Simulated scan of single mutants.
Amino acid sequence: MTSERTQGPGATRVLVTGAAGFIGARLSERLLERGDLVHGFDDINDYYDPTLKQARLGRLQGRDGFGFTKAPLSDRGALEAVFKEFAPQRVVNLAAQAGVRYSLQNPHAYVESNIVGFLNILECCRYHGIEHLVYASSSSVYGANRKLPFSVEDNVDHPVSLYAASKKANELMAHTYSHLYGMPTTGLRFFTVYGPWGRPDMALFLFTRKILAGEPIEVFNHGRHRRDFTYIDDIVEGVIRTLDRPPQGDPAYDPMAPTPATSSAPYRVYNIGNDQPVELLRYIAVLEDCLGKKAEMRMLPLQPGDVPDTHAEVSALQRDTGYAPSTPIEVGVRRFVDWYRDYYGVPPRAAVRGP
């Protein structure tokens, strides 16, 4: 474990798990910029290119106020040591085994990280008196739901992948700890996050690499499904807004008509999405325009575990934090392409492979 240098009197101590990940690295950067002390926790596994994770982490290491521990969430001893030595006041749990499709091939990884690992987080937060735990859920919890937009008031008992089931389990586990121990917890259902330093297994990254390389891209559901693509900085702003507002028990909660979104316990769940779903073919067209190159598309049916459409209803987030994501895809995709070209040394209009 590397130690943090003092950031200043009154600085909030925040533990960020998954700090080498897409969202975790950007969140850590923002927290440091506002003067918080941040300790990152990540196992830097090889689910996707570890050199990209190391590069994200390299932008944080050496900065005042940042420390780091390399370990998986399932390593209870390592996690307990961080809680004891760093003594965080708040925790943001972004570490998880991600990916809907990978959960069909390697389900055990999801139980180890997303269930066992999350239990370790809950127990550490309980015993160390954490003032607020914010954790990543996912729009995938809506599963077989078809009523749009997806609302945090909706029942989400029909997941269509083990990944989604593990995220729903996190919400249930968090509620239990909020109820039993009065521990404030907030779950954030992220909707299709994209932007600079993004994940190579996500569509925008895959499409960009293949289009530049002159390879065909696989377009599932014939490109007709719609996604609530949400820009990374909008996601991070939502995390920070909720982190600064530990929930209390909802005085309006009715046990005779319960809702999944609130509780008599200090527990909340929010959607963080752009509230502007975009058809995949439109998303690809914006990318083609940014790259200055047309895509060769292989049209395929919807994949197992995927859902046809997502659309975040964000009124609860707006009501409680005064914030809602707003970056249009034309802006966000352009920023991603500019970053991609810079990071991989791809000159304009050059058909050069990425990772």
Rank of each mutant, 00 (worst) to 15 (best):
A164Y: 02
L162F: 14
P50F: 05
D306V: 06
V38F: 04
S161K: 04
Y253G: 01
F86H: 05
L280C: 10
Y253H: 07
I329C: 15
F118K: 05
R59Y: 00
P72I: 09
R209T: 11
E131A: 11
L162V: 02
L52M: 13
G223F: 04
Q89H: 09
I272V: 15
G305P: 13
T259I: 07
F205I: 05
A169I: 01
A11F: 06
D43I: 07
C125L: 04
A285G: 04
L287Y: 02
R268K: 13
S3Y: 01
D233H: 01
D306Q: 14
P159R: 13
K84E: 15
Q248M: 09
R334E: 14
D306K: 09
S315T: 15
M1N: 04
R63N: 11
V239K: 02
S151P: 01
N45R: 08
R349E: 15
R146T: 15
T6E: 10
T259P: 06
P277M: 05
T242S: 08
R5G: 10
D309E: 12
R341M: 14
V16W: 04
R90S: 07
F190E: 05
G18C: 07
S74A: 13
L15T: 04
P301W: 08
H179Y: 00
G195T: 03
R126I: 08
M299D: 02
D228Y: 08
Y142G: 11
F207P: 00
D275S: 15
Y48V: 02
V38W: 06
P260A: 12
F150I: 01
E4G: 00
I115V: 13
G332I: 07
L52E: 12
G62N: 08
P9K: 08
D254R: 01
A144M: 08
T51N: 09
E112K: 12
C290S: 12
G77Y: 00
N271P: 11
A295W: 07
L15D: 07
V307E: 14
K293V: 14
F66Q: 11
H128T: 09
G67T: 06
V38C: 02
G187V: 03
T262D: 11
N106D: 14
P348Y: 09
D201L: 04
L300Y: 04
A25K: 06
I232Y: 00
V239I: 14
L212S: 11
V278K: 06
L317G: 11
R199L: 00
R76I: 00
